[in-house]
Computed example of a mutant assay.
Amino acid sequence: MNAPATLAEAARERRDIVSGEVMDEARLLRFVAGPGAVVVPDLARKLPGRGLWVEATRAGVEAAARKGLFSRAAKTKLAAGPDLADQVETLLRKRLLDGLGLAKRAGDLISGYEKVAASLSAGRTAWLIEAADGAPDGRRKILNVARKSPKPVEVFGLFGVEELGLALGGENVIHTAFLAGRGADRWTFDVRRLSGFSPLTPESWREEKPSEAGGT
C-alpha cells in the first residue's frame, strides 16, 4: 500500500482489526466500548473512547464479532453479539432516512414524476431514489429518463413508499431526485457504507424483465 502523501491524509487512515489492512476512514466503521463492556457502533464517529475500526462490510463486522477481534484490539473483554452487523445495517438505514429529511428541508430533494424527470434531463440529479414498492411501469419510465441524463445518475431503492413519506413529510412518495451538491456527497458517504451490508436496489427488480425495468 502506498504511504499517505500528507499528515492530514495519514490521520484519515485506520487499521482494520479484521484484515490488518490500513484503509481510508471512508471505507471503515468505528466501534467503541459502551456501557457494560458492550461493543457499540459509532457511525457518527463522535462517541468517546478508543475507536475499533472494521471495514464497512457485513462479512467484516460478523468476523470481528465471531472471532473476538474487538476484545483483542481493545485488550479487554468486550461483548459483541451475533446480530451486530444487523444493528449496523439498521442504524445506517435510519441515518439515510434522516439524511433525506434534512435534504428535503434544505431544498436538495424534489419529488414527483414530472419534477424528477425534468431534473434528470437537466443533469442536476446525483441520486434517483425510487420507492422499493413502486409500480414497475412507473419505475421503467423514470429509469429510461435517468439513462439519458447528460450526467451519470445512481439509483437507490431500499425504502418503501411509507418510509419515504414519513421521512419527507408527504404521501405516496415514489420518485425522488437528490440534487447534486454537498448534501448529496454527504449522503453518498453513508450509502457506500450501507452497500457493504445490502444491495442498493431490491432483488425483485433484477428479476423483472428488461422491458419492465428499463433494462437495469
Results as ranks from 00 to 15, higher is better:
A3K: 14
P4G: 12
E13C: 13
E13Y: 08
D16Q: 03
D16S: 01
I17K: 04
V22K: 10
D24N: 09
E25W: 04
E25S: 07
L28I: 07
F31M: 06
F31K: 02
A33P: 05
A33Y: 02
P35M: 02
P41D: 06
D42E: 08
L43E: 08
K46A: 15
K46I: 12
P48Y: 02
R50G: 15
W53A: 05
W53N: 08
V54M: 07
A56G: 11
T57K: 08
T57P: 13
R58M: 03
A59I: 04
G60S: 11
G60T: 10
G68H: 10
S71R: 14
K75M: 07
L78D: 02
L84A: 02
V88I: 00
E89W: 01
L92R: 01
R93K: 11
D98Y: 05
L100V: 02
A103M: 06
A103L: 13
K104A: 12
K104G: 12
R105A: 14
R105E: 15
G107Y: 10
G107W: 07
L109G: 05
S111K: 03
S111C: 05
G112F: 03
G112S: 06
V116P: 03
A118C: 07
S121A: 15
A122F: 01
I129W: 00
G134H: 07
A135Q: 11
A135L: 13
A135I: 06
D137W: 12
I142H: 15
R147D: 14
S149N: 13
P150R: 11
P152G: 14
F156Y: 13
F156K: 01
L166P: 02
V173Q: 02
V173R: 03
I174N: 04
F178N: 02
G183D: 08
S195F: 08
G196I: 12
S198G: 05
T201C: 09
S204R: 11
S211D: 10
E212T: 11
G215K: 15
T216Y: 15
